[in-house]
Design a protein around this nucleic acid. Structure first.
Lengths: 262, 262
DNA sequence: CTCACCCACTCGTCTATACGAGTATGTGTG
DNA sequence: CACACATACTCGTATAGACGAGTGGGTGAG
């Protein structure tokens, strides 16, 4: 078992009333912050830390679980504990649904990803009619059934976003919107062709920890929150014509908005 | 020791390859989701769960720590483990800095909080000149020193937000902006009086787990992420005149934006 | 040389135990 | 009645040990 290089991690302060596992977590966190362990680097193994600090293994694991909860490290069974690298971030601009970005052959996600040098994929496409949740129904003005379009977005093989669009049946049924591939410009282009000229969007943003199914579906590491975005599209008559519910891996996104000062 | 009411929690499946502590966490999560434990209610104590499932205490604690990490429960030393109540949410509208909301005697935070029936407070006010971080300096066009205004916002005694405004010294020094209380309408009103007519704002939003100092300062429960918002204000000449860096308790906020479809 | 296997090392799960510290309650004393 | 204290509960911290399972490298057989 390799010893830990001296100077990287200090000693425990037995006079402190701070719990031992917190002191160990503090020292590891500081070492990571100061770059003594770089992104992707392997931390000392549990048994090395046990040796170094002279504590039991559970105490060391407790310290490591603190850092996992902070999203600083992740562990790989059989390999070790590593400093979590920050994945490339996708920047969502607030004008991404403007008409000038729409009349192209490809979906916005694909265009943006390729511009950023990434390989985009869309999978888990599901299009079906269903009964909306109370929240979605209220946002759409109270329909009892809606068309739901579900899809998952991946960048370079990593799932980053899961989105569901809901549309009232009287708008979407029997149109290209109800097809798996709605065609160039996406469903907003189709809505406008169908006479629902779009006026504005409302977006609501929350952040929270993921549910277990979100962890699975987005393959989220411990300590990574999700951004929950609900966008409602309104036409010129003020009618809500679509609600899009999106859950994003928070470490993969920055949302950017431009607002008038008026 | 009180027994757990039958039907609330099931039994373990020893044939399953799902870890015992995960099965216990699953059952507790399901019971919470289905309302068998209501918001604020006390879960069975660790020793009751030990009794019920016939496992060791560490296994039960492991299960509970999973739920804590998900933000579903929080524990209170000496009392028990409770279903985490969802605090009242503060809704931030994208037009909250529009001029029509400005020319009033009170700060926007105070007005909004009182309208929502809450008791607002602002503390930890610090106003000083300092060297900006590389990021802030870049956003402001590269000044070597800036005025920093730090403050913490509380609702009904609970800290919800920590914000720092940075302004170039040539704009702010010697003006009311450098005073602890900049006067009615806040620093945006003062900037316009000083001839820096505001044109637009840019906001960048991220979500992540809090640092230990953020946990302390915002008194965050385990499993609560933060929303990190950086707003840059631009004047009519296109010059960035302020950067505001805000860290919010994610369970206390919804951000709402309205965007044109143009 | 190649490939299968073994072994050493990693983290994951679980048990059993011990003591400390915060909280609430009831009881007995003044 | 009021208050201090004992007590029984809560969760927090820590130890020591055991076995399992995933990974990777070295070694020996073919």
């Amino acid at each position: 078992m390799a010893a830990i290089p001296s100077g990287v991690l200090g000693a425990l302060d037995s006079t402190s009333d701070r719990a031992v596992f917190r002191q160990i977590a503090d020292q590891l966190r500081e070492a990571i912050d100061k770059g003594r362990f770089k992104e992707g680097a392997k931390l000392p193994s549990e048994s090395e830390l046990v040796e170094h600090y002279g504590v039991s293994r559970m105490t060391v694991r407790n310290a490591l679980s603190v850092l996992q909860g902070e999203g600083l490290v992740h562990s790989e069974h059989g390999k070790g504990v590593f400093v979590r690298p920050r994945p490339p971030v996708r920047r969502l601009a607030s004008d991404r649904f403007a008409r000038r970005h729409r009349d192209q052959g490809k979906a916005a996600f694909t265009v943006e990803a390729e511009a950023a040098g990434s390989h985009p994929e869309v999978d888990s496409l599901e299009v079906k009619e269903e009964r909306p949740t109370q929240d979605v129904s209220a946002r759409l003005g109270g329909p009892r059934r809606v068309l739901a379009r579900r899809r998952r977005y991946l960048l370079d093989g990593r799932p980053v976003e899961f989105a569901t669009s809901y549309l009232p049946l009287d708008i979407a049924r029997g149109t290209p919107i109800a097809e798996p591939n709605p065609g160039p410009g996406g469903i907003y282009a189709r809505l406008e062709e169908l006479g629902h000229r779009l006026d504005h969007f409302e977006e609501e943003i929350r952040a929270r920890m993921p549910t277990p199914s979100e962890v699975k579906f987005l393959r989220l590491a411990a300590g990574v929150p999700v951004i929950h975005l609900v966008r409602t599209a309104f036409d010129k008559e003020g009618r809500p014509v679509e609600v899009c519910d999106t859950v994003m891996a928070a470490d993969a996104y920055v949302l950017a908005y431009q607002l008038p000062a008026t």
